[in-house]
Simulated assay, not measured.
Amino acid sequence: MARRRRGLPIDGVLLLDKPKGMSSNYALQRARRLFQAQKAGHTGTLDPMATGLLPVLFGEATKFSQHLLEADKVYRTRVELGTSTDTGDAEGEVIACRPVPALEESDVASMVAGFIGEQDQLPPMYSALKHQGRKLYELAREGKSVERASRRIKVYDARLLCVSLAGESPCFDLEVRVSKGTYVRVLAEDMARALGCEGHISQLRRLKSGPFDASGMQDFEALEALPDQAALEAQLMPVDCLLGHLAAHRLSESGAKAMRYGQIARGELAPEMPGTADRALIRLYHGETFVGLGGVESSGDVVPRRLLSSFVAGSGQT
Rank of each mutant, 00 (worst) to 15 (best):
S209C: 13
Q235A: 13
G294M: 09
V79F: 05
L122G: 04
Q218D: 08
G295I: 12
V100H: 00
M1E: 07
R152A: 11
G196S: 01
A248S: 15
L122D: 05
A102E: 15
F115G: 03
S150D: 05
R6Q: 13
R141Y: 07
V296G: 03
R283S: 06
A149H: 07
L226A: 12
A109V: 01
F290N: 10
N25E: 02
E93Y: 02
D213W: 01
A192L: 04
A71W: 00
I153T: 12
A50V: 11
H42M: 03
S310H: 06
E297W: 12
A248E: 13
Y285N: 12
A166M: 01
L16R: 00
G143H: 11
E288H: 09
R4P: 06
L204D: 06
P48D: 07
E268M: 09
L46W: 05
D240P: 11
R283V: 08
G21N: 11
R185L: 08
R134G: 09
S315T: 04
P238V: 11
A225E: 14
Y261H: 15
M237A: 07
D228M: 10
G117F: 05
D190N: 14
A248D: 15
M22I: 10
E297S: 12
R5A: 10
E138M: 02
E138D: 15
P274D: 07
R177D: 04
G181A: 13
S299W: 04
M111F: 04
Q121E: 13
L251C: 15
D173W: 09
M217E: 04
P211F: 00
L28K: 05
Q36K: 11
D173C: 07
V303Q: 14
V178A: 00
C162W: 05
P99T: 08
D107M: 03
A214S: 14
A248Q: 14
Y75K: 06
H131W: 15
G82R: 02
A313R: 15
V74Q: 02
F220Q: 00
G114T: 10
L122P: 06
D213T: 02
G295R: 15
R78L: 06
L34P: 05
G262E: 04
G262V: 04
M259N: 02
F172M: 06
G7H: 10
H286M: 07
I201L: 14
L69G: 01
D219E: 10
P274H: 09
L139K: 09
Y75E: 07
A128S: 13
D240N: 15
R6L: 11
A96R: 14
A50E: 13
L174M: 03
H245T: 14
E224H: 01
L8H: 10
G287A: 01
S127K: 01
M49F: 14
V112F: 02
D190S: 07
E221K: 12
D228I: 08
G167W: 06
E189I: 02
A90W: 05
R76A: 11
V108G: 03
E105V: 05
F64Y: 15
A280N: 10
R30F: 01
A222M: 09
G300K: 05
V176I: 10
